[in-house]
Amino acid sequence: MSEHHVDNTGSKFGMWLFLYSELMLFGGLFVLYAAYYYQYTTFFISGGKQLDLFLGTMNTVILLLSSFTVACSIEAMRKNSKKLVLLLLGLTVFFGILFLCNKYIEWNHKFQHGIYPGSAYMEQSAKGLVIFFGLYFTMTGLHALHLLIGLIVIGVCFFLCWSDRINAKDFITLDNSGLYWHLIDVIWIFLFPLFYLIL
């Protein structure tokens, strides 16, 4: 059955369909965000002020850069410059890890201040704040999980390119993995203002 038809347009369409389902997955949480923002606007504002704007902005820049490197790697693949592809994918993985490190620092900081779900400090806080941080941890946590999966996917692509199993003639795997990575970026583009910029 190895002679299965090659239909890149179809595989890509399938990938887009998968992205739609990912959008809806986060969409459920956006419904929650919208409803609770409406209910607890003032608490959301005071919660947003407690987040680290610098780290948040840094992470936004990092993710945009990583999206750029992925887009370029596909362009490089089209031009058949393998070394450049590997360099760009490596950079992407680097940016991804950097993002997760930042996230770790940020969460760790919050934990030290007793801000985490179910903590004694949160028990005493206003309900609106509990909800804000509940959403913050759930949404950025789910996003970080996706980014981790994305890292693995891009990592696998790196080795497939390295061993020439992804090449200039057949790089649909890289193309689709890139789409996934960009989607993670798009979701962060919305998460960033919703949490960090509600000042």
């Binding site: 389902s21 990912e22 809806m24 997955l25 986060f26 969409g27 459920g28 949480l29 419904v31 929650l32 409803a35 609770y36 209910q39 607890y40 779900p117 179910g118 949160m122 206003a126 309900k127 609106g128 509990v130 909800i131 509940g134 959403l135 941890f137 759930t138 789910l142």
Partner: peptide, 28 residues
């Protein structure tokens, strides 16, 4: 996916007590 993420939140609630659906913590 919507029910998927909703059920995930229920799991988070049970494991970590996030409070998103718990009225005693402000959830709805």
């Amino acid at each position: 996916p919507i029910v998927g993420v909703t059920l995930l939140v229920v799991i988070f609630e049970r494991l970590f007590g996030v409070g998103l659906f718990d009225p005693s913590k402000g959830g709805d």
